[in-house]
Write a protein that binds this DNA or RNA. Structure first.
Lengths: 192, 192, 192, 192
DNA sequence: TATGAATGAGTCTTCATTCAT
DNA sequence: GATGAATGAAGACTCATTCAT
């Protein structure tokens, strides 16, 4: 009752969402170098003016797109760790979930694009760092912090290499690495 | 009191070198998004026209800069594996060399910029892939291929995360991961 | 004392018109070789950016200018054939109208510039061909197709030569040619 | 004996010729708009420097190319009128020779390119005018000046229209026009 | 408020021209 | 002389941004 939209188009939130999602998708597909108002507007199906109305300049628009990408990655993590929990949180569970993730090349490329964009953008590094820490935190129920960090590093490396090579890292490699990290004694000074 | 000459000496090789190095340095420092003829020319100390004389378009210039970066990374690898050999090729040697590498934030950022640029450039992915394979090959004298790949993935992940976090991955993490990968049984199916 | 406004009124139609007309006039005066965005913008009294907003590249701008010129030529034809009709459509009428046309050196030069531009532009040849056919068609009420074509060829030659010589072809020449074409027996095999 | 070329390449005359011919050919094929030192040099198979050595600027180079084209056209005329003479200088001879000429589309296009380039170049108009007068003069042995001029106008129109249409003017049209011009009484006031 | 026309800053690119080698 | 590297002037084109409608 409080809403009385004069026209169907009166949906600022929806507009903004559409723009942000279009920006995120474009960044995921071709990086930030070719991101322009015009391309975002066209891809989002909104008039050019909207992209400048909702974002005071192109940097903000890019940032919004990257943040959206960051959010999607977080959802990825949520899902991955939900699956890990379902599978019992075992080393094998970690390995399988990671390998499943790596087999989705499109997803891997989008995620990597996010990190790639962050490399040369100080503000974005913040987000990437948060993402890193989230991954570590989510692993803590299953392993100590050192191992959790190692697993995160491994995941990030596998993601990057899978993206660049255009095909998943050999699952055996991931499985070996994950399981050996789990199996390692904490104090590396001790022999086995 | 030598006045600077109106026109530079004729030196095609040197000119090209200077331009490529300037491009590589700029990419390493701020990525490819802000790479323009003007900035490269200014940074290389050559007139604008020279950048277009030696490279028929900006894409070629970018590519040349990235290839130069790729060469620098290869040199990094050479050095790292020379050090590993000197240290006996032990797991501890790998761990130490990687940790030393990660402690050079500037170097890590340059290398990561190369991979980041490759994410959205199909032709550059070729180079990145070659770099990946080189790393695996260099490890083969010390471990089997599965472990060599795992170590490469780990190194790449550590590089990316070190770059994004702005500080080296905890050396203990690297050490644990490296040593456990070395220690792992080969057939993961047997474990547990 | 009205200060000239910082920004022009919004008037897409008028803008486009002004630009096209400026382009047409410049082409008519100096051909297509020296047609640049800058010159058109200056001549049209619009900022440089407008010329690229309305035409996605210089070829389109040139084409638009040439098409405009083509339209002007069509109007010329309309007028000429209206005059011919008024004068009874006799050979003398044709001769007089053509001679009148040739006496307007400026007009002849503009028209010739259009054909000259078409010589090396396949797409423009289409237009020139249409113009040729229009002339033939307009003559058909008065003569058969062979003679109509001959008259068109004669007109085009007279236009070209008048343009290049800087003075009209001797009216007696045009008169003789026109009247003899009218007078000729249709089947040239019979003659002599 | 007086010549002792140090090297095979010491042939300034030949160089100049090659450049001029390349320029002429390029102009004949694509007009003067796209004529550049680089293109001429490449097409002539000479180094870039030669084109600036022999011609102090691009305008001179273009002019030299156009003059060469003019010379070629003169040769065309020579040949045509030699053929006309061989055929007896009759109206039918004129018609046949012109129709033969028009059937060589490539030649027609080159010639027309010359006239087209002259339209917007005052100096070139001189040449075109000379060419016009040459044609008239060559016809004088067979007809009076008025008819000679009419035939020239007809020829030029047929050339232009053939070029623009991409196919020869119907031979019947040319034949009719030529023969009727020959047949006409000089004083158009008289009835037939 | 929503839109896209208007504008200019800045980038890419091409070339004529100069001139050291 | 012959050559092509060096250079800057200028043209094509793209876009972020502003702001009238």
């Amino acid at each position: 009752m409080t809403e009385k939209p004069k026209r169907a188009k009166r949906d600022p939130e929806g507009r903004r969402r559409a723009i942000v999602e279009a920006a995120a998708e474009l960044i995921g597909r071709e990086g930030t170098r070719k991101l322009t108002h015009r391309r975002v507007a066209q891809h989002a199906g909104v008039p050019l003016g909207s992209t400048t109305q909702y974002f005071s300049n192109i940097d903000e628009l890019r940032r919004a797109g990257l943040e959206e990408l960051g959010r999607l990655i977080e959802q990825d993590y949520d899902e991955m760790f939900r699956d890990i929990a379902k599978l019992g949180g075992t080393p094998a569970a970690f390995a399988q979930v990671i390998n499943d993730y790596l087999s989705d090349q499109a997803q891997v490329e989008v995620d990597t694009a996010f990190y790639a964009a962050a490399v040369n953008d100080p503000q974005m590094r913040q987000l990437a760092r948060a993402s890193f820490e989230l991954s570590v935190r989510r692993s803590l129920p299953y392993v100590d912090e050192t191992r959790a960090t190692a697993l995160t590093v491994l995941l990030d490396g596998a993601m990057l290499d899978t993206c660049l090579r255009g095909e998943p890292i050999d699952p055996a490699v991931v499985t070996l690495a994950v399981e050996s990290i789990f199996a390692a004694k904490l104090d590396p000074g001790d022999a086995r």
